[in-house]
């Protein structure tokens, strides 16, 4: 097992005991986003110039109001010199949480904006297809789809758009090379 999943699973267990799975996830996402946007924070978090004690103190301040799991996790990560795998761990943790909650995020991309009513119908249908899972629908509008819709969820992509059909039509007309 890689270090990334070891940390992710440990964090998951800890957060579950404290019943703060989701809050921790949101906190961590927030932190990762902040990291991405702030160069100074990156230097601080990934750098090795700041003394460990100092680093812990700053992490405490930064994560004020966040869950204990978040604060402790960030500290452990930085103490063990694994700061650079933060993003990977968070991603893995996110998968674990979603799995645990039985939640599926579905991204629905359409050519035109859908009305609330249609969205609800789509959600109902999806709920029936993905049995027993809670569907979280994220919508997106992309006019270049021409028509139809594209659903993406967990590594699958169902393309029912006109654009997709045109593309596959083109592919079958052009005898494509070896690869």
């Amino acid at each position: 097992m890689s270090a990334v999943s070891t940390y992710a699973e440990a964090l998951f267990e800890a957060a579950r005991e404290r019943e703060e799975l989701e809050d921790t996830l949101n906190n961590l996402r927030e932190f990762v986003n902040a990291l991405e946007e702030n160069e100074e924070l990156q230097l601080f978090f990934f750098g090795t110039q700041v003394a460990e004690r100092e680093k812990r103190r700053v992490i405490d301040q930064l994560t004020e109001g966040m869950t204990d799991s978040t604060t402790n996790f960030l500290k452990v990560l930085s103490d063990n010199g694994r700061a650079e795998s933060l993003e990977d761990v968070v991603r893995r943790y996110e998968d674990l949480v979603k799995d645990h909650m039985g939640r599926v995020e579905v991204r629905l991309t359409t050519a035109v904006e859908l009305s609330g009513e249609t969205l609800n119908r789509v959600k109902d249908r999806l709920g029936k297809i993905l049995e027993g899972k809670e569907v979280i629908l994220e919508t997106d509008v992309a006019p270049d789809l021409v028509g139809g819709a594209v659903f993406s969820f967990g590594g699958q992509r169902v393309d029912g758009s006109v654009r997709g059909q045109l593309l596959s039509l083109r592919d079958s007309m052009l005898e494509r090379g070896a690869v």
């Binding site: 993406s152 590594g155 699958q156 992509r157 169902v158 393309d159 029912g160 997709g164 059909q165 596959s168």
Partner: peptide, 12 residues
């Protein structure tokens, strides 16, 4: 088969 031509693919 215009109606049922839906491409399902695995993506990352």
């Amino acid at each position: 088969d215009y109606e049922n031509r839906v491409r399902t693919e695995e993506v990352g």
